[in-house]
Design a protein around this nucleic acid. Structure first.
Lengths: 146, 146
DNA sequence: TGTTGTATGCAAATTAGTTGCATGTCAATT
DNA sequence: AATTGACATGCAACTAATTTGCATACAACA
């Protein structure tokens, strides 16, 4: 949840028209405390304003391409989308609960990756490193005890 | 590629019947130097023996559940399957080329992750940590220069 | 011999995402 | 004002990856 982000601004400073659909999609992603699937985002927008599924996918692709949003792969099939690191959002990694299928953000700094050795020796070009912790979330652990 | 693994043995010591289909699937995964998709595995088996697509999926699920094989997520596309760490296979992470869609294994130890801080503070249960490096592989870099 | 469990096959369904093409909208150009 | 072009969106159909339901086959067991 981000009180500091002006999503219209974010779009404009990325060189994108801040259309109502784009602002809505970006707001939903930004105001949520954990990453959402395209389907989640679609139904959330739909609750208040009509929008097409395809439009959501296209907006998500645009936002990812312009690095406003990060596409995260979950253990399952659907990609999840979260706000990309920016002035108000420190980079962080994610947790995926294999029981309930929900993703969560880990505290920035709770994982420490050093990729120096790889960067020195790797012959390709590195664009991004994604770390996903899989397991069972607190809620699911609780509800399995009875 | 593993000369040291007896796949029939691996299956049996996991408590699984070493059926010909299972041995074939596991062999293909184990003999390949990079992780493969279900479709790759299916076509490879098919080249010499008839098998059903669904059987491949079911065997893969079984092998993953019994921790003989690891399911790796590749940026939203098809899952890739590689041999799980065992006596002959040090744990390692993977590279995904966003250009050609191929996965590759990174040298064990080329990435160093310390998860102590997370493990101390995280309230859920951690089962697995997957790290994927995305970028452009050497081959694709080469072929884009002309 | 009958029954039960496990492995596989086949067809159809489902899920997640993509493509092609039509329409609307707005701004710049004639 | 009419014309053009660039986007943004919508709709229908499509594809890819996987899953489900149900049938069969075979082996072990009662």
């Amino acid at each position: 949840m981000c009180v500091n982000c002006d999503y219209r601004d974010l779009l404009e400073s990325a060189g994108l028209e801040p259309t109502t659909n784009r602002v809505r999609v970006l707001e939903i992603i930004g105001n949520n405390q954990f990453p959402l699937t395209a389907a989640d985002i679609f139904t959330t927008v739909e609750r208040s304003h009509s929008i097409n599924r395809v439009t959501v996918y296209r907006i998500l692709e645009l936002l990812v391409d312009h690095k406003l949003v990060e596409r995260l792969s979950a253990g399952g099939r659907a990609a999840h989308y979260g706000l990309a690191p920016n002035d108000n959002h420190a980079p962080h990694h994610h947790f995926f609960c294999t029981r309930c299928g929900r993703m969560d953000c880990l505290n920035p700094g709770s994982l420490d990756l050093s990729s120096d050795r790889l960067r020195k020796t790797f012959s390709g070009e590195i664009e991004r490193i994604e770390i996903r912790v899989d397991g069972v979330c607190r809620n699911c652990l609780k509800s399995s005890v009875h």
